[in-house]
Design a protein around this nucleic acid. Structure first.
Lengths: 211, 211
DNA sequence: TTGCCATGTGGCAGAGACTGCCATAAGTTA
DNA sequence: TAACTTATGGCAGTCTCTGCCACATGGCAA
């Protein structure tokens, strides 16, 4: 793998400048009240260029949410295929939580800002779900493949993924304190996951048994 | 209660005309490809009037989804307050499913069309979630009140509501056949609910016990 | 019936998100 | 340096959605 050229580094800088400018403005004056023109001006690019980096305003706001979801999907692929679905998902989610903890201070700040933004703008949480559901489907496909069932005939892979995913969403929403570090955020997610696990009958996710 | 006047009946007719025109066009040429102007023209009102009935294009498309959710919330309020949360919710959801079955043929058609639309336009399912989450919060408030816990301190009411709500969403999405009557739609929802219930430890939703 | 008030409707101008198109600028490679 | 590829900016245009005002219609009381 070769070192990214000047062009690539420049693009990365522009992308981060846009994200930082966007989150800053969203938190300062509200998501709706912030226009693309303002973000572009703050990041020192033309409005037209904004759309070369992010298809929509939402995409900028939710960038770190989507990045995290892609990480979960990638982690899922590394799990042994004889593992039970729930365990695989749990490990994949935990790995992504660990990535949040291990991020650079700048990235941690961006994530915490994203969380504050979602807190202040509940409608954004819903809008994120469009993509989240698509990601859930891909995870369910992976689960179905491993367990040797057909996703179109069996509702259970989708159910397993959706239940865990929903748990994390609820945990994410229910952070009532002003978080200043990533550890607290992770802690609530962990406790929600524990509640879910304790509520479930052992072996509920074993799809090789008859339903 | 007095008979609604001419004015009210006229409004109701216009609302239904807009919904019918909208669903028709969405299914025929796609959700994105359909403009407000087209819908307004088909319903024989001005584009400006469209927005007096629906705040957004989504609101028209998802009208029946929201109506159903409001019904669930209303049903929840009628349940005895000493009932366990999950049982209350289950009954409320069942009652709303029954309302779907008992609807007039016209309304049943509109619901089935809405479902086909959501099938063809997955992004709409996500967009509906903004509102659904708000409704979930209200249900969780009701549950928390009955169980005597604080919603801001205890994640469990939200979890209980979210798990059941997610189950129904998944069931709704996983209707792979072209449905022609409401009964089939209800049947899949029922089976998903059964899967959820079998997966859960009895008493998991009893919040009076210590967590 | 007449007149008044409340309310629904249409038209218009405008902001803001987003796209297609084309010219220009910058980076990459030979 | 020249040729190629890719990023950027500007512009015109579409579509969603809003505020404002004039007008029409339904409801109601004298």
């Amino acid at each position: 793998m070769h070192q990214p050229g000047l062009r690539e580094r420049k693009k990365q800088r522009t992308r981060l400048a846009l994200i930082d400018a966007g989150l800053e403005l969203f938190l300062a004056q509200g998501y709706e009240a912030t226009t693309i023109d303002q973000i572009a001006a703050a990041a020192d690019v033309s409005p037209r260029t904004f759309f070369r980096y992010f298809a929509t305003k939402e995409d900028l706001a939710l960038h770190y949410v989507f990045e995290n979801e892609m990480r979960i999907l990638a982690e899922l692929a590394t799990r042994p295929s004889d593992e039970l679905p729930f365990a695989s998902l749990k490990h994949a989610f935990r790995k992504s939580l660990k990535a949040v903890e291990d991020a650079t201070p700048e990235d941690t700040q961006r994530m915490l800002r994203t969380r504050r933004l979602l807190d202040a703008t509940p409608s954004l949480v819903g809008r994120a779900s469009s993509r989240t559901y698509a990601m859930e489907r891909r995870m369910a496909e992976e689960i179905a493949r491993r367990q040797g069932v057909e996703l179109t005939c069996d509702i259970r892979p989708m159910m397993i993924v959706a239940l865990l995913s929903t748990t994390l969403r609820v945990a994410f929403e229910c952070q009532h304190r002003e978080l200043t570090n990533a550890k607290d955020l992770v802690a609530v997610s962990e406790s929600a996951m524990v509640f879910l696990e304790r509520s479930l009958v052992p072996g509920w996710d074993d799809l090789t048994r008859p339903s």
